[in-house]
Simulated scan of single mutants.
Amino acid sequence: MVKIFFKYLLGIFFIFAGRNHFANPEFYLPLIPDYLPFLDLINSVSGIFEMLLGLGILFKKYSKMAAWGIIVLLLLFIPSHIYFIQIGACVENGLCVPKWVAWIRLLLIHPILIFWAYIFTKNKSYGK
């Protein structure tokens, strides 16, 4: 029962995070490394994949594949976390945190999210 709760929590987290890429793109765009092209496209594609993978993890048929997709997506987000640290953990008129918080996000929270998704890559099925 606890694993089902955490599976649904993970799915809902990613669905809302993905939706937020469209509701609040000005939050995400400055966090995308400026050396990458097509920032708007990267933001939109990230949001779409977050929503699709969050939804996918909720269904037994797709949950293992979605969990692996979440892991890949989180790995692809690492350059953004590093970039945020490089620019001083502060975006003008946007997210601004102490640098140590950005490091905690990269070195602790991000791996926890990856591990959380990894739990659902196992052959056991949780939920519907």
Rank of each mutant, 00 (worst) to 15 (best):
G11F: 00
I12S: 08
F13Q: 08
F13S: 02
F14S: 06
I15E: 14
I15F: 10
F16P: 07
A17H: 09
G18D: 08
G18S: 00
R19N: 09
N20G: 05
N20A: 07
H21T: 09
H21K: 04
N24L: 12
P25D: 15
E26D: 13
Y28Q: 13
Y28M: 11
L29R: 15
L29Q: 15
P30H: 07
L31N: 09
L31E: 12
I32N: 15
P33F: 07
L36Y: 15
P37K: 01
P37I: 03
F38C: 04
L39W: 14
D40E: 11
L41Q: 13
L41F: 10
I42G: 06
I42M: 11
N43Q: 04
S44H: 04
S44E: 10
V45H: 03
V45D: 01
S46Q: 12
G47F: 04
F49K: 03
M51L: 03
L53Y: 09
L55V: 15
G56C: 13
L58E: 00
L58I: 08
L58Y: 03
K60S: 10
K60E: 02
K60Y: 04
K60D: 11
K60H: 03
S63M: 06
M65G: 07
M65H: 03
W68P: 07
G69A: 09
I70F: 03
I71Y: 02
I71N: 02
I71V: 12
L74Y: 09
L75S: 11
L75H: 07
L76Q: 07
I78K: 01
I78A: 03
I78M: 00
I78R: 02
P79E: 14
P79I: 15
S80Q: 13
S80D: 09
H81E: 08
H81C: 06
H81A: 06
I82P: 00
I82R: 01
I82A: 01
I82T: 05
I85A: 00
I87L: 04
I87K: 05
G88K: 12
A89H: 08
A89E: 10
C90T: 02
C90K: 06
V91F: 14
N93L: 01
C96G: 05
V97I: 14
V97L: 15
P98Q: 14
W100P: 06
V101L: 06
A102E: 12
A102S: 09
A102F: 10
W103Y: 11
W103K: 10
I104L: 10
I104K: 02
L107E: 04
L107R: 06
L108I: 12
L108A: 11
L108F: 11
H110T: 00
P111G: 08
W116K: 08
I119W: 02
F120N: 11
F120S: 04
T121K: 02
T121D: 03
K122M: 09
K122W: 14
N123W: 09
